[in-house]
Structures are given as structure tokens and as C-alpha cells.
Amino acid sequence: MRLKNKVAIITGGNSGIGFATARVFLNEGAKVAITGRNPKTLAEAAEALGGGVLTLQVDVNDAKAMEDAFAKATAELGKLDIVFANAGIPGATPLGQTSVEAFEAIVRTNFTAVFFTVQAALPHLNDNASVILNGSVHAVLGIPGYSAYAGTKGAVRAMTRNLASELAPRGIRVNQVTPGGTRTPIWNPSAPTREEMDALEARIGGLSPLGRMSEADEIAKATLYLASDDSLNVSGIEITVDGGATGAPSGAKIFRQ
């Protein structure tokens, strides 16, 4: 088991990529805590994960509550070896149609809260721990109408490198996993039916050479590498899981049709 006797905390672990990562970490022997705002989905996640997970109802935007949550996780599970700052929100912010409040809500959750998640974890981190931030290919794709979301992911990309430098004296590695379009419940509002989801996958998947969206488990397995001792001398990098959409865009499936 690659995470035997390690303690991990995953923000937003009650759904999507966070949930898939919690399942992978548990299967690899870790003791796992997950956070989420919704008590119902937290309880459902704990049941689906087999009950061997600590659930913490907390909003990542509440810095004091996050400090308390990390202290509770450490008291119950032990000092932390792995932090996956996964929680985030989607949202379009087209020019001419966006309020300051809507823009700043995305920045607060997807960037500011990520920094304060790591800060809340810091007193509870073992030396040589692994911190993983969740990024997005939006940081480099230039998708119209998503300036706030893309901006936060670009900021996280920069912060990964800053924190890797800052925490290096303690041997703490800081890296980023960068998903492309991934099949998670985040798409439910825009593709509520099977037919609509198939059409969405064909459209988004067609933008990558491998021709499909990622599965949440595939992001989780990349995160596992960064969390495990397999990456003991890896810091300040990102692993992109997008079927080649950003690395080899000219090979996209749509160009072969």
C-alpha cells in the first residue's frame, strides 16, 4: 500500500475529484479526513467510502473554521502527511454581464481559500509532507467568458511554485494536479440527461488527442503519485490530466473527423 500509515485531508472530498481521491487514498492505506459544506453529501460520501473516513463540515472560505477543522482532524487521526486543497467552484464571468460579487466569490473560493487552507494545515504538517493543489487547464486555454475562474487557476499555478519554495526547508513538497474536462457532478446543471452528457463529452473530449473527457479516478491516481513516496524528490510541478488537450492541441480528435 502506497499510503500506509499516512494521514490525509481532502477539501471538497464529498463529491467529484475529491471523493474519488478519498477512495483511492483509503484503498492505499491512508487515514483520510474530508471536508464539505453540505452535511447530507458528507454523510453520503462517508457511507459510500465505507465509514472509514472522518467528515468535517466546514466552508473553506471561513479561515477560522478551517483552522479548527484541521486541529480536529489532527487530534483524531494524527499529524498530517498529505493535504489536497481540492475544493473549488465553477462559474462564468462574461464581460458586461458580471457583478463584482459574482467575480469575487470565485476568487475567494478558488484562490484565497486555497492559500488559507495550506496556512491552516501548516501547524499540523509533518516534515516531508505532501501538499497538492487542484488546478485546471482553464489557466492556459483562454476560454471566453471565464476570466475569474481561469484567473484563479492561473494564480494557483503560480502559488504552487511559491509555496514549494517556501516550504522546502521542512522537506514539504508542493505540487499541482491539473484536470482537463472531467466527468463529475459539476456538469449536472448543464447536462442533466444521459443524452446531453454524451453530447458534452463528445464536444469537450473532441478537443483532446485522446478524444474523451477524463474520469475522476484518473485525476485521483495522478494525485496519488504526488501524495506518495514515489514523488519524494518532486516539487513545484503540475501533472496535467487532459488527454493531451494542452500539450498536443493540434492532434485533437476534432481535426481527424
Rank of each mutant, 00 (worst) to 15 (best):
Gln119Arg: 15
Asn38Ile: 08
Ile239Ala: 07
Leu207Ser: 15
Thr112Arg: 15
Thr11Phe: 08
Ile34Arg: 09
Leu49Val: 05
Leu167Thr: 01
Arg2Thr: 07
Arg2Tyr: 13
Asn134Ile: 00
His138Ala: 12
Gly96Cys: 07
Leu26Val: 05
Ile204Asn: 05
Glu238Met: 08
Asn128Tyr: 11
Glu201Leu: 02
Phe19Ala: 02
Ser15Pro: 01
Ala120Thr: 08
Gln119Thr: 07
Ile219Trp: 02
Glu67Pro: 04
Leu125His: 03
Ile9Ser: 08
Ala20Met: 11
Lys40Tyr: 02
Glu47Trp: 03
Thr182Cys: 02
Gly135Ser: 12
Ser208Lys: 00
Lys72Cys: 05
Lys4Glu: 15
Arg212Ser: 11
His138Glu: 01
Ser214Leu: 06
Ile106Gly: 04
Lys4Thr: 14
Gly91Ala: 12
Ala222Pro: 00
Val234Arg: 12
Gly88Glu: 03
Asp68Trp: 05
Leu26Ser: 05
Thr117Ile: 04
Met159Tyr: 15
Phe103Trp: 15
Ala120Arg: 08
Ala150Trp: 00
Ala191Tyr: 13
Ala245Phe: 09
Ile89Glu: 13
Gly29Arg: 15
Glu47Phe: 02
Ala164Thr: 13
Leu95His: 12
Ala139Phe: 05
Ile204Glu: 14
His138Ile: 01
Gly96Asp: 05
Leu224Trp: 00
Val118Arg: 02
Ile186Trp: 00
Asn134Tyr: 03
Ser136Phe: 02
Pro144Thr: 13
Asp229Tyr: 07
Gln257Glu: 14
Ser235Leu: 14
Ala63Pro: 00
Val177Phe: 00
Gln119Ile: 04
Lys221Ile: 08
Thr112Glu: 14
Gly88Phe: 00
Arg108Leu: 13
Met66Leu: 15
Asn128Glu: 15
Ala168His: 08
Asn128Arg: 15
Gly142Val: 10
Arg161Ser: 01
Arg170Cys: 03
Thr21Cys: 06
Arg37Leu: 08
Ala222Gly: 13
Asp68Cys: 04
Gly12Val: 12
Ser190Glu: 13
Val60Arg: 09
Val241Met: 03
Gly29Val: 12
Ile9Ala: 09
Leu200Phe: 12
Lys253Pro: 02
Phe25Thr: 08
His124Val: 02
Pro90Ala: 11
Phe25Pro: 07
Ile239Asn: 07
Gly205His: 10
Gly36Thr: 06
Thr74Asp: 02
Glu104Leu: 15
Arg203Tyr: 14
Trp187Gln: 11
Thr21Asn: 07
Gly18Leu: 12
Arg194Ile: 03
Thr178Lys: 10
Gly211Asn: 02
Val177Met: 06
Gly142Cys: 09
Leu95Ala: 15
Asn110Glu: 04
Lys253Tyr: 05
Arg183Ile: 11
Leu122Ile: 05
Ile204Pro: 00
Ile82Ala: 10
Leu3Ser: 10
Ala73Ile: 11
Ala227Ser: 05
Lys40Gly: 06
Leu207Trp: 13
Gly88Cys: 03
Glu201Lys: 08
Gly18Glu: 12
Ile254Met: 15
Lys79Met: 09
Val58Asp: 06
Lys153Gln: 00
Gly206Ser: 13
Ile204Lys: 12
Asp242Ile: 09
Ala105Tyr: 07
Leu226Arg: 04
Asn175Ile: 00
Gly206Val: 09
Ala20Val: 11
Glu76Lys: 14
Gly50His: 05
Ala216Tyr: 10
Ile186Gly: 04
Asn233Leu: 14
Lys31Asp: 05
Pro94Gly: 10
Ser15Lys: 00
Asn86Ala: 01
Gly236Leu: 09
Gln119Pro: 01
Ala45His: 04
